[in-house]
């Protein structure tokens, strides 16, 4: 079992649905974005192009963030999911420096979206003090997956650009997409063996 994801760049419309649904699912504070959409403009008018790159933790098979963690807080879970045990994290941020994909975020203080006004009732309910002073990251919504659901970013993708499943199962949709569409990893030369694949737009 090796959980993985395929993101179809032909289908992605850059709506930020994945980013917002992830924040709603995990109740992450400001500045913490497990899923995010990077946008970049290329060219000069009138020959311009807007390119989207939806990213998240790539749950690498050889995750450098796991190797550098001094406490073992960063670890592999079932299906190769890379996760952080909050209670063991000392907040040294070595994993953030080791991750080539910027998938980890340090939650330095308990701040809300409305500075100077305290936390809203929603924020008070969703933000955990246990997450302050530690590093936070995507865990492929493993609790949802164990309950038979898709990760929030997959379930809420309006364009159905994301496909989640077992990469080790050749019959799974994600494995077939990667195989048939020529799925590409981001920066494979780094040797991290990411388990998130991008399906090229053309």
């Amino acid at each position: 079992m090796r959980y993985g994801m395929a993101i179809d760049l032909k289908r992605c419309v850059g709506c930020y649905g994945c980013q917002l649904s992830c924040k709603a699912e995990h109740g992450t504070p400001p500045g913490v974005l497990f899923a995010r959409v990077l946008k970049r403009e290329f060219g000069t008018f009138p020959n311009t192009q807007l390119v989207y790159l939806p990213t998240l933790c790539f749950h690498c098979t050889s995750a450098p963030c796991v190797d550098v963690c001094p406490t073992g807080a960063s670890h592999y879970r079932e299906g190769g999911v890379v996760d952080v045990t909050t209670d063991d994290c000392v907040g040294c941020r070595a994993c953030m420096q080791a991750c080539p994909y910027g998938a980890r975020f340090f939650n330095e203080t308990q701040t809300g979206y409305f500075p100077g006004q305290g936390l809203t009732p929603y924020e008070e309910r969703r933000y955990s003090k246990e997450n302050v002073g530690v590093v936070m990251k995507c865990n492929f919504c493993i609790d949802r997956v164990k309950a038979g659901l898709e990760p929030a970013c997959v379930a809420n993708c309006a364009a159905r650009a994301r496909t989640f499943g077992d990469l080790d199962d050749p019959q799974s949709e994600v494995a077939q997409l990667v195989r048939l569409r020529g799925g590409e990893q981001l920066q494979p030369e780094l040797g991290t063996h990411p388990n998130v694949y991008y399906l090229p737009p053309a």
Partner: peptide, 14 residues
């Protein structure tokens, strides 16, 4: 520097 300095004793995964 550490976000959770009180847990420093857990840093033994050498």
């Amino acid at each position: 520097f550490l976000g959770r300095g009180a847990r420093f004793w857990k840093m033994y995964r050498a």
